[in-house]
Design a protein around this nucleic acid. Sequence first.
DNA 1: CCCCAGGTCCCAT
DNA 2: ATGGGACATGGG
Length: 244
Amino acid sequence: MAQTFLTYNLDLDQIADSGQVFRWLRLGDGRYLIPSGSRETEARQDGNRLYLSCSEEDAPFWHSYFDLDTDYGRIIRSCRRIHDSYLNEAMKYGSGIRILRQDLWETIVTFLISQNNNIPRIQKIISRLCQSAGHFPSASEILQTDLSDKGLGYRDKYLKNAAECWQNGIHGCFDSICGVGPKVESCIRLYGCHDLSYAPVDTWMKRVISEDYGGRMPEWISGPYAGVCQQYVFYYKRKTASAC
DNA sequence: CCCCAGGTCCCAT
DNA sequence: ATGGGACATGGG
């Protein structure tokens, strides 16, 4: 019933608030209900131990979901050699962040919704989408669903189009999906394909570049762990810039 | 009323 | 190739 994992550089609170997932549910007492695709598990941690309420046969799935084969301490040490003080601060601040291996279809839909939108509203919309089906809707369920009452705005047609593309098989050409531009594609490749070299540049990253890097692109943005660095910096900027 | 939100599309230069 | 406005919705 309960599986135990030994982990480093993993902080559920930081991951939950890192802007890569929108369906984690805080249960209190440091517990989270964590869905991915059509599965879900309950998680809590105590020091270096991560406890998941899943069967033994599902353990490998969640092991992969939390990317437990990747040594984030090694990534941080490697990136420290760039001697970027802002990045170093961000890595220290959010050292428990990992890049989850999320369900690809869910990632596509989620980040289609994210465009020109804010995080609380993204969460609400996705919650409404899952309410009708009881789980994250498949492509065919999206095609059968009336989306007009989900608060999607103009993005409803993007979802319908994406569902058709997905059913026809879109392997590896995400920008052919209507509504997927460079930023959303970066999110899909980073969170859905685990390509750590993709760094999504959104409004927060633009602020960081202009306010903290003097308008110049940081060196790490073209490195092999650009996506991980971006996640640390995004989290750090959002946490320290917002007074609320 | 305004502006903004993990942008993209479309059209005009 | 680059720049600006439009786009649905909701919150501040």
